[in-house]
Amino acid sequence: MIIGMPAATFFATLIWPFVYMAAAIIDYFIMKKQDEQIDDTEFEQSLVGRAAKAQHEGGENK
């Protein structure tokens, strides 16, 4: 028994938060490493586009 419950139930249900958090941290670092090798400039255009548009509109309004 672990904290008053059968060991099978404990391992089947309550260890998962720790497993998922560890998996998320590992996942983060793997994705970070992959992202460093990728050029995503064309997919960040929504930010570039909006900033440039805002600047352009600001210039027109002056």
Partner: peptide, 13 residues
């Protein structure tokens, strides 16, 4: 942006 995904994974988890 696609690179926001890794941080979203942490927050969501």
């Amino acid at each position: 942006k696609p690179k926001a995904a890794k941080t979203s994974v942490l927050y969501a988890t």
